[in-house]
Amino acid sequence: MFEISGLSKEFHLHHQQAARIKVLEGVNFSVLAGECVALTGESGSGKSTVIRLLYGNYLANQGAIRIGGLNVADAEPREILEMRRITLGYVSQFLRVLPRVPTLSVVAEPMMNAGAGEAESLDKARTLLTRLRIPEQLWSLSPLTFSGGEQQRVNIARGFIHDYPALLLDEPTASLDAVNRATVLDLITEAKGRGAAIIGIFHDQAARDEVCDRSIDISQFAAMA
């Protein structure tokens, strides 16, 4: 599902003494459908950068990122959008949504974007929010007013509402209590079960051991600055 070869990334900061910061070089790995792979490496080794490159959020300087047949590294914007709509889900650490939109709509949105009907999407959103223990009285409020843990769970619900064949997870269990953490791990296991290819960053060693089939150490691709 994921096939990454020769990927490198450098930031060129024109306004900060024209600094060139080389982060990654020669990243090579692949992930099959039904597989869950953890990216490891110390802080600053470029794990999040890899995730963002895969999602098309960062522009790759070199190499190829093939996700379900599309090379993200040189795809047209609309091809990437199409991939994000149908193929690739992303649970980031930050919830970025419009203010004042109710949580239920925020969660249902990715499913509607993927082409599902409104009623169906809202139903699934309710199911997921219930599973993730977001109290029903909060559903009509904007998630931006929520606590960090609640926002994180809303983000997770958005990532799992559509059955993406591929998923990127950036610290999905951070700032969650034990019960909710277990629910998230269940969701990941279920996604694996239906054949999704998953790449994640888990600082939580126990969680990593529970759901991941193997690890890839990103530090091996760290660029020599």
Partner: peptide, 14 residues
């Protein structure tokens, strides 16, 4: 020009 979030999060031009 490019994908909106990419240009905002990883702008290339000075």
């Amino acid at each position: 020009s490019g994908l909106a979030d990419q240009v905002l999060d990883d702008p290339q031009h000075p």
